[in-house]
Simulated scan of single mutants.
Amino acid sequence: MKKIINDPTTIVADALRGMALAHPGLLRITEDPAVVARADAPVRGKVAIVSGGGSGHEPLHGGFVGPGMLDAACPGAVFTSPTPDQVQAAVTQVDGGAGVLLVVKNYTGDVLNFETAAELVAADGIDVRTVVIDDDVAVRDSTWTAGRRGVGGTVLLEKIVGAAAESGADLDTCERLARAVVGNVRSMGIALTAPTVPHVGEPSFTLAEDEMEVGIGIHGEPGRSREPLADADAIVAALLDPILDDLPFAEKSRVLLFTNSMGGTPLLELYLAHGIAERMLAERGITVERRLVGPFITSLEMQGMSLTLLRLDDELTALWDAPVRTAALRWGA
């Protein structure tokens, strides 16, 4: 294992200290429990958007904290759910009196711990709602989840609902929009290599040089199948076809296409794959109106990629275009 670390047991805390120094004025980071909050939180009269999950998927979630996106994120240990006390502390830090929306990826630990935290803060009189994202079409159940996994669609959900909250939308509206995104977004990923969790010290699984894992999860969970390594056209088709089959992206559909690196795939290859995906969608009469390309929800250094399609309408498009100012995503601000 080759990594730029001192002690595997303190890697998250050490990284958070560096993150705080890198983004003064934007983020406020506490260590016990670990919470990444926007520096001006709480914003009075604004719905607070809170998310979180295991570390190792950076920039998710801490990189998306700031005006126009998340109010706070709870970073767990690497590939490990944040604890209920983390979520409770995050909610308490950023509650501005208009309620709190929790965005939770569909992993068993995340769901249970966020539910526990929601019960605790509700007992304190905070109006809290929870929306679970489950956009991965690769598998229906896995060792990590009951139902589909939450993957790349999380980024799009956090941006859209964060923009709504920033504009002054109430909690009911933010929840409605979050559920609209969940109902209209689908993703699938592929791995060429495995990630190495620092405290484990060896790859999560083994792939031969001529193999790829189709439908991989963001923690290195198994996918649909292990296949011979294929060229870029075949890889993109293997990701797009199940997405298009799962949710009717009919001819003349308007979509946002998110082409994501799992951490180890360079932009040279990612842009190549994105171009192929745009071409294949155009051949089906599907209009790509918005795009996001880059490493935005990763799995440490895993080589691989995922594709996410969100079916757009005018409301979702306007919220996607709205200003955002975070460490990892920034435009119009």
Rank of each mutant, 00 (worst) to 15 (best):
K3G: 06
K3T: 12
D7K: 10
T9Q: 15
T10M: 09
A13H: 05
L16D: 13
R17N: 12
G18H: 09
M19A: 14
L21Q: 15
L21H: 14
H23N: 15
P24H: 13
L26F: 07
L27W: 09
T30E: 15
D40S: 15
A41H: 09
G45H: 11
I49V: 15
G52Y: 06
G53H: 09
E58S: 12
G68S: 10
L70M: 13
D71G: 13
A72D: 04
C74P: 02
P75M: 10
P75I: 10
A77L: 15
P82A: 14
A89Y: 07
A89G: 01
A90D: 01
V91Y: 04
V91N: 04
G97M: 05
V100M: 05
L101R: 06
V103Q: 03
K105N: 06
L112G: 01
F114L: 03
F114D: 07
T116G: 01
A117R: 12
A117P: 00
A118Y: 00
V128E: 06
V131T: 14
V139T: 13
W144S: 13
T145C: 06
A146G: 14
R148I: 06
V155I: 15
L156R: 00
V161L: 07
A164E: 10
A164Q: 10
A165H: 10
L177Y: 06
A180N: 05
N184A: 13
S187V: 03
I190T: 14
I190E: 09
A191F: 02
A191T: 07
V197S: 08
G201E: 11
E202W: 01
S204H: 06
L207F: 02
L207C: 03
A208H: 08
A208I: 00
M212A: 15
V214P: 00
I216Y: 01
G217I: 08
D233T: 04
D233P: 00
A234R: 12
A234D: 09
I235T: 12
L240Y: 07
P242T: 06
L244E: 01
D245M: 01
D246E: 13
L247A: 11
E251Q: 11
K252D: 09
S253K: 04
S253I: 03
F258G: 03
N260M: 08
P266D: 15
G275A: 05
I276N: 09
I276G: 08
A277M: 10
E278W: 00
M280D: 12
A282Y: 00
V288G: 05
R291W: 00
P295Y: 07
F296I: 10
I297E: 05
L300K: 12
Q303H: 11
G304F: 07
G304Q: 10
G304L: 10
L309K: 02
L309R: 02
D314T: 06
E315Q: 13
T317G: 04
D321M: 07
V324Y: 05
V324P: 04
R325L: 08
A327F: 03
A327K: 03
A327I: 06
A328C: 09
W331V: 06
G332Y: 03
